[in-house]
Design a binder for these strands. Structure first.
Length: 346
DNA sequence: CATGCGTGGTT
DNA sequence: TAACCAAGCAT
């Protein structure tokens, strides 16, 4: 018979090895009475959805500098926020971020229960539990990819995901302590991110290595099991990049729903099995001869380009000419911009 | 319950 | 280098 993993052992490890993150109240500070800012916790958790700490760090700092409070964010212009989010991905998060900030401002503050939080746009089961636990130190159970991996290993759950989700959630709930639940939630995620990693877990230095069933069986690196994924198809498209003498570019704002929703993009036909010509205006379109390749969640894209210098007088059928901050563009559009700029010396 | 939705680091 | 995968949510 083996003992169950002890939350106290993980908390002791966390007290010594917690990562230093800009949105985090260090365990020693929390013991000293420092209270997290729910706004900062919420902002970080939204940014961290399916996104690595390394990618989020600078975006978080920038957002908090530009908009130090939820009221400030609620008062921001949509395009400004979308532009600052550009490059971080999953742009529905940015649209929901604004909706949520405005709802919270209207309410006079963030809800203080998990159920209340989960009613807000962009906040689901994971994020509501994370904010409740981290910001308010409520005994809620967070279940993210890290927690699923740790539970799959410690309890040697061989059932593949997503079928195993309910069992993993139940196991995780069984471990959530009444003491320091906020630090505990962050501790499990830190463990998953730094020791119980997907490929080569560092079991030798894991505080739970004595209670880990998968390690005892020697199968830790194979868990969690996952249902096989369907291969990504390749789609093709053509993007049209037109520049006026004043340095403005022809761009379109994409519809709020769907791929890159609400973001700026280059005109062109919808991407599909074949690249379709769809020039937004008559011009002397040139092929820079370099294709942009980009991979989205569920398909690969090969994007051909057409570039043109156009006079101020010419009127486009679609889109508007604007001065562009390249950092306001989603990554695939910025890649196209970089190619076009290199092909069009001033 | 399955699918659509970005990007970049790691292996 | 191609595949994997990350502090998920909305529909």
């Amino acid at each position: 018979m083996c003992d169950a993993p002890k939350p106290a052992d993980l908390l002791a490890w966390y007290d010594r090895h917690a990562r230093d993150l800009p949105w985090r109240v260090a365990p020693a500070d929390r013991v000293a009475g420092v209270v997290p800012d729910p706004y900062a916790v919420w902002l970080s958790e939204i940014m961290l959805q399916q996104t690595t700490v390394a990618a989020v760090r600078d975006y978080f700092t920038r957002f908090l500098t530009l908009w130090p409070t939820v009221e400030a964010l609620a008062a921001a212009e949509d395009d400004r926020v979308m532009g600052e989010w550009a490059g971080l991905g999953y742009y529905a998060r940015a649209r929901n971020l604004l909706k949520c900030a405005r709802a919270v401002t209207q309410m006079g503050g963030f809800p203080t229960t998990r159920a209340g939080l989960e009613e807000l746009p962009g906040i689901g089961p994971y994020t509501s539990a994370a904010i409740a636990a981290i910001a308010y130190d409520l005994p809620e159970t967070v279940v993210d990819g890290n927690v699923e991996r740790v539970m799959a290993r410690v309890f040697q759950i061989e059932t593949p995901l997503p079928e195993a989700k309910p069992e993993m959630k139940a196991r995780a709930a069984s471990l959530t302590p009444d003491a320091r639940p906020g630090d505990y939630a962050q501790a499990v995620m830190d463990l998953g991110a730094t020791i119980c990693t997907p490929k080569s877990p560092a079991c030798g230095i894991c505080p739970w290595n004595g209670q880990c069933r998968a390690r005892r069986a020697g199968v830790q690196a194979t868990l969690p099991a996952r249902k096989p994924k369907t291969p990504k198809p390749t789609r093709y498209g053509i993007a049209y990049l037109a520049r006026r003498p004043d340095g403005s570019w022809l761009v379109e704002r994409r519809p709020d729903k769907g791929l890159l929703g609400g973001m700026l993009g280059w005109p062109g036909a919808e991407w599909g099995d074949l690249a379709a010509e769809a020039a937004p205006m008559p011009a002397d379109w040139a092929d820079p001869g370099v294709e942009v390749r980009h991979t989205f969640t569920h398909f690969h894209l090969r994007l051909a380009l057409r570039v043109a210098e156009v006079p101020d007088s010419a009127q486009p059928r679609v889109g508007t000419f604007q001065k562009i901050r390249p950092s306001d563009l989603p990554t695939v559009m910025r890649k196209a911009f970089d190619v076009a700029k290199a092909a069009m010396p001033d």
